[in-house]
Each structure stands twice: as structure tokens, then as C-alpha cells.
Write a protein that binds this DNA or RNA. Structure first.
Lengths: 188, 188
DNA sequence: ACCTGAACACCGTTCAAGT
DNA sequence: ACCTGAACACCGTTCAAGT
């Protein structure tokens, strides 16, 4: 005799986000998710293959949201302005959703990595900025320099790694300005 | 009646490194460490307060080794040459000891973070390079830009995040050259 | 068709008991 | 003084049994 579904994949993902943003990956247990959606742990396996699978769904979701935020920030037509806008949007996302940011860049695991297409809008935006500033030949190198710097800065900031004082906002703005100069400058 | 010690803190740390480099943080269990040093899990708590405490010891050790590698690479007197040497030493360390690198930059946890003094040699080397290139007023901002870029690049590389093809070594060299230009250039 | 209790193989950690 | 088995409170996951 069929039993009505007592939860859903969407409810599970929503509950997982709440727990993840509160207590991080290590706090995200199947037991806590089960309690949050009102079923017993074994029932979760009707919607999700494993805990790892659930994490993969969250990583994909986070990728999509980050890509959308970056894409929305670009498009002014001025690469200098776009660079600053994208960098600030990137950092703002990380500050607003630190755990989401963390799992996007922190999950080494092959099986948690979403499709390249999910990130395509963000990739395109950054590549276009880099091509405008550094020329099409150096677009990929330039984009990698931009993303590496932005990710390194934000992840160190979130990790509390900037411990020598000074103004962090100022350091971020400094980086944006000098990066634009560096990309636009001819190689020495 | 006293019993002779059957293991030591050094043996525990050495075993932990082997396990960590092989299977990462999640593979580092007290049970596996105990087996590796030839005691039962409860005995580990005579040398180490907790698993977290053991991880903290590893993080400290990794910090020291990374700082030493960076310090050794600098000191030519030429900031352009030093910048390249330090960047390559930094990347080489990450490639040679990916898990050690990972726990140095990846551990958000307050209680795992070692003393600032452990990193002092590396901080000094990078600050000195940045001061030479960008001037003393922008030394801290410049150093933060350098470290953010290097860490972002290497961590993305280790995570397999550069997925659009192209030559990664080339992108790294490109970054070094443009960073030097960017720091040495006057603000626009 | 979905949910559940019971079970299994793991964790980290504590502690009384052994030597 | 150090080591151990047993125990506790947790994990993720499977599966037969219930509705």
C-alpha cells in the first residue's frame, strides 16, 4: 500500500543549506538533515544516493549562484569598470555565503565537482575582461591571474589569514587597481 | 609498577604525516594512527589531547616547513629575481606536499592556527620584496597581493580548477611577470 | 511507494582495571 | 607511568519488515 511522501529533495537541500551555513561541512550529518525535514535518517536515501551525493548537489547549487552573481556584475562595456564590479561581487558573495563559497573552491573531490557548463557564464565574463585588457592572446593567462588573486584574497580573508593589521578593504582595492594595470601593460 | 613507553609524540606525528599525505584529513583517524605506531587508540591520549590537537601539531609543522622553504628561496638582493624564486618555491612546496599545503591554508579553525612567529621568516621575505617593488607605503598591500595570487593559483591548481586547457606553467610565469610590473608601476 | 527500527561497521573519547 | 578492554555517544549506510 503506497505511503504519501513525507519530504522532498528540495526540502532536504534547503535543510542542508541551513545546517551547512550554520555549522559547516562537518556539522552536516544525515541525522541532522533527517531531523530537520522530519523523517528518519534511512528515508533520506530514497532521495539522495549518499551524503557525498547530497554535498555534490550543494556544490552545484553554490556554483550556479556564484556564477550568476558574477555574470550579473559584468556587462558595463568598460573592462576596467567590469573588473572592479566582478571582483567586488565575488567578494560580496563569499562574505554573504561563506560556506557556499568554501565548498565551491574547497572541494577537491572529483565526484563533487559539477559540470563545466555551470560555471560558463562566470568564465565568459572574466575571460572577456581579461581579453579586453591583455589582448586575446593572453586572455586565458589573464583570466587565471584575476581569478587566482580574487580567490586567494577572499579565501585567506575568510580563513583569518591576514593577521598583520592594515585595512583589508584597502588591500582589496589596491589589488584590483594594480591587476588592471598589470594586465593592460605590455610585457616587460 | 611503571610500564616502558611503547611509542612517542614524534612517532605519532610521523605516522600522522604518512597517513595524511596518503588519504587526507578525513583518512587521519586515531585508530589508524594507533595501528601505525603499534598501540591501542586510547593510548594516544597520553601524548595528544585530542585528534584536533594532533592536527594542530601537523599544521604548525607544515607552517614551519613552508616558511623555511620560502625564506631559503629569497635573499638574492634583486627583488625581481626574489619574487620569481619565492613564487616558484611556494608552488614547488605545494606540489611536493599537497596535504601539508592544504592544512596550512585550509584550516579555518581558530584552535588549529599556529603562532604568528612561525610564519615570520616567510612574512618578512615577502614584505621585503613588496617594499622594494612598490615602496614602503604599499609594502603590506603589495605583499597581500602577492600571497593572495600565489595561494589562489596553487590552491586552484591542486583542486583541479583550471579546466579550460592552456599551459598552467605558462600561466604561473605570466602571473609572476605581471605582478612584478604591477607592483613596480605607479598607481594610475 | 515510502518510511521505519534494528543492525553493522565505523568514529572520538573516557575510564576503571591491569601491569 | 603507561597501556588496555569495555563502554558511551555518535557517524553513514543497508535491509527486512511494516503501512
Amino acid at each position: 500500500m503506497p505511503t504519501p511522501a513525507r519530504t522532498s529533495l528540495d526540502a532536504i537541500i534547503a535543510a542542508a543549506w541551513t545546517i551547512l551555513e550554520m555549522d559547516g561541512l562537518e556539522g552536516l550529518t544525515m541525522q541532522r538533515v533527517a531531523v530537520a525535514v522530519g523523517v528518519r535518517p534511512p528515508s533520506l536515501y530514497k532521495r539522495v544516493r549518499s551524503r557525498g551525493d547530497l554535498v555534490r548537489l550543494l556544490v552545484e547549487d553554490a556554483h550556479r549562484r556564484l556564477a550568476a552573481a558574477i555574470d550579473a556584475a559584468a556587462g558595463s562595456g568598460d573592462p576596467w569598470r567590469d573588473l572592479a564590479a566582478v571582483a567586488h561581487a565575488f567578494r560580496a558573495f563569499a562574505h554573504a555565503h561563506p560556506r557556499a563559497y568554501e565548498i565551491v573552491f574547497g572541494s577537491i573531490r572529483e565526484d563533487w565537482r559539477p559540470d563545466l557548463a555551470t560555471l560558463a557564464p562566470a568564465n565568459d565574463a572574466v575571460l572577456s575582461i581579461a581579453a579586453s585588457l591583455a589582448g586575446p592572446d593572453q586572455a586565458l593567462n589573464g583570466a587565471r591571474m584575476l581569478v587566482a588573486w580574487a580567490h586567494g584574497f577572499v579565501s585567506m580573508e575568510l580563513a583569518g589569514a591576514f593577521r598583520l593589521g592594515g585595512d583589508i578593504d584597502d588591500a582589496f582595492t589596491f589589488g584590483i587597481e594594480r591587476l588592471a594595470v598589470a594586465l593592460a601593460a605590455p610585457a616587460r
